Simulated assay, not measured.
Amino acid sequence: MAENTAPKRRTSAKAIQARKAAAELAAQFQAAEATRLDIAAQRMLLDQQITESEEETERQVAKLRARREKLTAQKRATAERLVVRMLDTGVSQAEAAQRFGITVDQVRTAKANVEQRAAAEQQSVEDGDGADSASTGASTGDAAGAGSATLPQQQNGQQDSAAAGVTQPPGSAV
């Protein structure tokens, strides 16, 4: 049998140094790669956080827009009731429009809207929804009582002296 009698190769000092240098470069490469991996992971985490932040902001904006719409509708309803109150004092639509700085068409629209809401509220009461006028007024944003303030009595063009210049809260005696 033939034995493998090949002599062992001896590694030269240059080969040992080259191997050490290659191992050091490989270690540096691995360290740099680990750093790059950490940087990429941080960036991806930030991208996720940005997306979540944008989604939360959009939810909050939608909530604010809904609140704005609700408040605006309530204020418009109150403004329309004020137009009707002005008309109820006996002024013409043209005069009411001039006093409010709006058009006569806007006065007519406000009056029609108030009448439609009143009819809808009346229908709701008749249908047995249990909505009474006090709770309906509160739900439409009439917290200031714009549609239910007591006006002073007039006789011969003069205001009642007890109520002259004084706005009474709803339900109070004049």
Rank of each mutant, 00 (worst) to 15 (best):
A41K: 09
N113I: 01
E54L: 12
A97L: 05
D38E: 10
E126C: 01
A13K: 01
A23L: 04
A164Q: 09
T103Y: 08
Q106V: 00
V61Q: 02
I50W: 01
P170D: 00
R36H: 11
R9D: 07
S12R: 02
R10P: 00
R99H: 14
A112D: 15
L71F: 05
D88E: 13
S172Q: 15
A94V: 09
T5A: 07
S148T: 11
A110V: 03
T89H: 03
E55K: 09
L71Y: 09
K20E: 10
E95F: 01
A27Q: 08
Q30S: 06
Q28P: 02
V174G: 15
K8W: 06
E126G: 03
Q17T: 08
R59L: 03
T150C: 13
E80R: 15
A118R: 05
A144C: 06
T150R: 14
Q30C: 04
A164L: 05
E52M: 13
G90Q: 03
T89F: 06
A110Q: 03
P170I: 02
D129H: 10
T89K: 06
Q98T: 11
V84Q: 06
S148L: 01
Q116R: 11
E58W: 00
E52V: 07
I16Y: 09
A73L: 06
A2K: 09
A173V: 14
D132W: 05
A18Q: 08
A149D: 14
D132Y: 02
N156A: 15
R76M: 11
A32W: 03
A162C: 12
R68G: 15
S92T: 15
Q106R: 13
Q122R: 12
R99F: 12
R81M: 11
I16L: 07
A18E: 13
A22H: 10
Q168N: 13
R117M: 05
D88M: 07
A15T: 08
K111Y: 07
L87I: 09
R36V: 12
Q155Y: 07
R9K: 13
Q123W: 01
A40V: 08
A119G: 03
L87H: 04
R43D: 06
F29T: 10
Q93H: 09
M44V: 13
A138L: 05
V125A: 15
E3W: 02
R65A: 00
P170F: 01
Q48C: 00
L46K: 11
V174R: 14
S148K: 09
Q30T: 05
D129C: 00
A144D: 12
